[in-house]
Amino acid sequence: MQANLSLRLSQKRDLTADICEFTFVAADGAPLPRFEAGAHLTIETPSGAWRSYSLNNDDGETSRYVIAVKREEQGRGGSLSLHRQLHVDQLVHARAPHNGFALVSAPRYLLIAGGIGITPMLSMLRRLRRQGCDVHMVYLTRSRDMAAYADLLESPEFSGLVTLHHDHGDPKRTYDFWPLFATPDDRHIYFCGPPALMNAIYLRTIHWPRRQIHSESFSGVDAQDGQASAFRLRRASTGETFDIAADKSILDVLRDRRIAFASSCESGTCGTCKVPLVAGEPDHRDLCLSEEERQSAFIPCVSRALSDEITLDI
């Protein structure tokens, strides 16, 4: 992939024993492309590997990008090389920030961060505070020493907005989320942290409306272990088109639009929903059509399109 930004490391400082903050400015000193809270920056690390890190400064700023990186001794080398080999005034290639975790407009916000998951949450907190929104953050780490930005979050700037909790590795001191989640209300909940925390919050907010629950998601990976991307479906009989999002099947979308459809297994094995394929390049993901059938038929519960558009006789 092409790099489209050249950044200069202007400051580097240790936040905890294994988390280091990196502040980048444009190599030419010009303003940087704007970003939104929740966005990540993808940079070329000194190891040669490209890695993405959430921006944690205020998204009103255009003079700098700030990231905090935890050193992963057992990782693939990207974070280690940043910690050890990237020095102030060195240049790095980067791609403009991208946001897959945007804040939506809401009456109230609850932000939950675990460990290094603080980074996108901090940017969100800065913006929501600046805008005068009703926001509460819960920040969980094993100990205060391990809590990046603890001093900042305890400063008058964020007074009353943040609950810091440290369990010291003791299961009996695990933070009790339940009072926050017991009754769904108008809050939107954003969370980011290690998998155990993500799973715990998913299960404890299972009764909340999904539109109010936001986490860094890895959408596009489905139960078939494939990568999915969005495409457009054209209905041959009427010419109508339907946008099929990465996390939806054709069947999902048609059903939402009340287009009646016979289906059964919804896993590409029974063939009940088979339809004629008219045009476009199919990504056949079924296990029921023969290679010959695949020339002219399509299984819309699982199959997708490789081309931008696919036409089916529905």
Binding site: N199, Y202, L203, I206, D222, A223, Q224, D225, C265, S267, G268, T269, C270, L287, C288
Partner: peptide, 13 residues
């Protein structure tokens, strides 16, 4: 976990 993980019908097939 209340999540989809193992694609059972496909694996049976």
């Amino acid at each position: 976990t209340a999540r989809r993980d193992i694609p059972v019908p496909r694996l049976l097939m």
